[in-house]
Design a protein around this nucleic acid. Structure first.
Length: 472
RNA sequence: GGCGCCGUAGCCAAGUGGUAAGGCAGAGGUCUGCAAAACCUCCAUGCACCGGUUCGAAUCCGGUCGGCGCCUCCA
């Protein structure tokens, strides 16, 4: 039974088969690096990080490409408004590239805290201007784009498939009240591939049509196919990118003769008290602030506790429930022995592993996979209490494998805390022992030293007080 | 106006034709000097509502009500 994924283009669950067996190419639309990351930026990276880990575990080599937009993304709509980077640069009195650098690293540092591994390649729009110009020239040659006043537009009327991804009828798009009319465009539905740079525009490159800058959608068509091939496996993004961004990407790529993505995946929005989090409405949770209050792993765990195609609510109560649940899994894990003395061998959890795999293979159903782990926790605690340490140890390696390895939930953090705690606890015992020595209760003092020695902690009395170390 | 999604216990959240996962919170119990943790038991005769199809529906169809998203920048 192969993995099944929901394909947004086909609008149904389909078996996933990589174009080249054993190799998977994934392209995910990354952020426009012009401001601090919000929680909304975390869902896609976390979900795709898990997808990547799961595919690799099936023996695939995954090339994971996430772009970073650093030019061409305008504040208002596709064709008017200021460039987001340029606007921010003015505000902060920085070079646009400085703005991009700053938020680029903030973004990836934050993602790393959430356990998101670095992409294989992180292409930037400004680094692929020549490729974008080449694609635009090809579209013009194919009769799908035209130049007007130093700008180039995609001719939607010439591409009948336009609307296939978002399920829109191109002829009805005109009816939309908010499709603006701009004189140099032949049709209000047309979108910019290349924009003429006005005199004051600070981000500009030479092109066959004069100085200008690329439209927002072109970069993804170009960079995905450059690094993954004209046809590649998975293209991902937020649900709100389906239209117009992905629709336009698809039209541009196919219009240039590229088969493009074979599977489209879109994650759903985050809500706060039932309302969609929206950057433009200021209704968002700042990630840095949130991470001061909760363990990054709680955020990751909470995101995975709902299916990626469902809404996920970040209300405080919901987040706290995740924190409490994760705490239970971690403390259970910490209570299990790391190596089996005797008892049930590793195949004790075969069924659990199968259930976990079935959930993951079913369109990455992480909530169900997590439910399996809670079942394991309960059963392993029971085994532990019954003295079946082999079974508990096997559960521990299962957690290492699935909770840490596949879902990317860090369990060593708990281990480091345990290490710190060990020191404090030994110190406490030494204080009690010192009190015993003071009242000349040497039997008690010696008992403490011997019991610690049994546990592998050597105590040595020195003129400066007691010292301890682990015997390894 | 067009397209689409959703409505499952106090909260979060799976399940998409075979008789309601899991988590949090809550109640009772075992254990315990008392707690905590852990474990056990309980916690939706019902999945917004009304019809229909079916041997059988939370799941399919129709309608009603309610919430939301996209059609502008957003992940």
């Amino acid at each position: 039974m192969p993995m099944h994924l929901y394909d947004s283009l086909k609008r149904r669950l389909v078996p996933f088969e990589p174009l080249v067996p054993g190799h998977v190419g994934i392209y995910v639309c990354g952020p426009t690096v012009y401001s601090e990351p919000h929680v909304v930026h975390a869902r896609g990276p976390v979900v795709f990080d898990v997808l990547r880990r799961w595919l690799e575990r099936q023996g695939n080599t995954v090339r994971f490409v996430t772009n970073v937009t650093d030019v061409g993304h305008l504040t208002d709509d596709g064709d008017e408004g200021e460039d987001k980077l340029a606007k921010r640069a003015k505000l902060e009195r920085l070079e646009p590239m400085e703005v991009a650098e700053k938020y680029f690293w903030t973004y990836f540092d934050t993602m790393r805290r959430l356990g998101v591994r670095r992409p294989s390649i992180v292409p930037r729009a400004t680094g692929h201007i020549t490729e974008q110009i080449a694609l635009i020239e090809e579209l013009i040659a194919n009769g799908l784009a035209y130049e007007a006043g130093g700008s180039v537009y995609f001719d939607v009327s010439a591409w009948s498939a336009y609307g296939e991804l978002s399920g829109r009828d191109p002829s009805e798009l005109v009816e939309g009240t908010r499709v603006e009319v701009r004189s140099e465009k032949r049709d209000p539905r047309d979108f910019a591939l290349w924009k003429r740079a006005e005199r004051e525009h600070i981000m500009r490159w030479p092109s066959p049509w004069g100085e200008g800058f690329p439209g927002w959608h072109v970069e993804c068509s170009v960079m995905s196919t450059k690094y993954l091939g004209d046809e590649f496996d998975i293209h991902g993004g937020g649900l709100d990118l389906v239209f117009p961004h992905h629709e336009c990407e698809l039209a541009q790529a196919r219009g240039a003769g590229k088969p493009f993505a074979r599977y489209w995946m879109h994650w759903n929005m985050l809500t706060l008290g039932g309302e969609k989090m929206s950057k433009s409405k200021g209704h968002v949770v700042d990630l840095a602030e949130l991470l001061e209050q909760v363990d990054p792993m709680v955020v990751r765990f909470h995101l995975l506790r709902s299916h990626y195609r469902s809404l996920s609510d970040f209300a405080d109560e919901a987040l706290q429930a995740s924190a409490a649940g994760l705490k239970r899994l971690r403390s259970a894990y910490a209570s299990w022995p790391s190596h089996a003395g005797s008892g049930t061998p590793a195949e004790a959890w075969t069924t659990a592993r199968e259930r976990f795999a079935a959930a993951m293979d079913n369109d990455l159903n992480t909530p169900e996979a997590i439910a399996v782990l809670f079942d394991v926790a309960r059963d392993a605690n029971k085994a532990r209490d019954a003295g079946d340490l082999g079974c508990a140890a096997a559960a521990r390696s299962l957690f290492d494998d699935l909770l840490a390895g596949v879902l990317g939930i860090d369990l060593t953090g708990a281990r480091e805390q345990d290490q710190a705690l060990l020191g404090d606890v030994v110190q406490l015992l030494l204080e009690q022992r010192q009190l015993a020595r003071k009242r000349r209760d040497f039997a008690a003092a010696d008992a403490i030293r011997e019991r610690l020695a049994d546990l592998g902690v050597t105590v040595e009395d020195t003129p400066d007080g007691a010292r301890w170390r682990r015997q390894d």
